[in-house]
């Protein structure tokens, strides 16, 4: 039973990583940039939800929607102001700008909301579900997280596969020039991608802080880096890859914590990533691009 319990909490943590990784992977697929500020959008989302729910006593669902709205707008603004002027610039310049944005968000949060840790109120309530006659208890947060992740996966798969905007996104990630020639507005497609990614980050932030309820301005950094590894793990640019990578990463992390050592669990996660990349250099579901001479 302990094994099953660890597996469920692993999947739950992995679901959060998967939602964050989706943001990384979508932005990478289309804009070909590593958006290092993504982790900090999570933090902003969590703070907005915290203030809405704990301070203004709004219902949790309103808090989540407010967080999503703020993060979506934030994502679009950041893209317009910081990344759009650099569309033609070398990728390293964009990377450094993203790091600048990350510093900016963290320090703004520090000024606005101080460095005192906030105890995040659970948006799902503290309930627990008992299974198998009480042998297995799963907290409500875990269940909600997993269900949210599944819903997001299905919705996103449908969105990219069937809607006009989703198809435009796939076209842009395939070949920006050709997409433009086909009459796709590349700029608004990229903005849309940032909007969706940031909105998802807000959800991830709320879920993350419901499961691990300490909120500080650097809350988003480590999950951000882990989710980024998850995106690479599954093959960056691939949406199913991000989901698979996220969940696997979460499960590996929880198992490493439970069965090996809490202190070196991060090292084990990264070691697995390295091994996977050495065997499959483009990630689990990434497209192996043949080099033409």
């Amino acid at each position: 039973m302990a094994f099953l319990n660890f597996l469920i909490s692993g999947i739950s943590l992995g679901s959060i990583y998967a939602i964050i990784a989706l943001g990384y992977t979508m932005v990478y697929g289309i804009a070909k940039m590593l958006n290092f500020a993504h982790g900090d959008v999570i933090m902003v989302g969590a703070y907005i939800c915290f203030y809405a729910v704990a301070r203004y006593k709004l219902p949790p669902l309103v808090g989540i929607l407010a967080a999503m709205a703020v993060c979506t707008v934030l994502g679009i603004i950041v893209e317009r102001l910081a990344y759009k002027p650099l569309r033609a610039a070398p990728s390293l310049a964009v990377l450094i700008t993203a790091i600048g944005v990350s510093y900016f968000l963290q320090n703004s949060a520090l000024l606005l909301w101080s460095s005192n840790p906030k105890v995040f109120p659970s948006v799902t309530g503290m309930g627990k579900i008992s299974l198998f006659g009480g042998q297995l208890t799963v907290s409500l947060v875990t269940v909600v997280t997993i269900i949210t992740c599944i819903v997001i996966m299905i919705a996103l798969t449908w969105f990219t596969g069937n809607t006009k905007m989703g198809k435009a996104m796939r076209a842009c990630s395939e070949d920006k020039g050709a997409a433009q020639l086909m009459g796709i507005n590349v700029n608004s497609t990229i903005s849309m991608t940032f909007a969706i990614g940031s909105g998802l980050a807000a959800i991830a932030g709320v879920l993350l802080c419901s499961a691990y309820p300490t909120l500080v301005p650097t809350t988003g950094s480590m999950p951000g880096i882990k989710a980024f590894t998850a995106a690479v793990f599954g093959g960056i640019g691939s949406i199913p890859g991000a989901m698979l990578g996220g969940i696997l990463l979460g499960v590996i992390e929880i198992f490493a914590k439970a069965y090996i050592s809490t202190q070196v669990s991060d090292a084990i996660v990264f070691a697995v990533l390295i091994v996977v990349l050495l065997v499959k250099p483009a990630g689990l579901l990434g497209k192996q691009v043949r080099e033409k001479v």
């Binding site: 960056i236 202190q263 070691a271 990533l273 390295i274 990349l277 250099p281």
Partner: peptide, 22 residues
Amino acid sequence: LRLKGDYLAIVTLAFGEIIKSI
């Protein structure tokens, strides 16, 4: 160094974190 581009970058990141953990 068997890897390329962003994949190489992420593996160096991973090694940095592993060294820190060790």
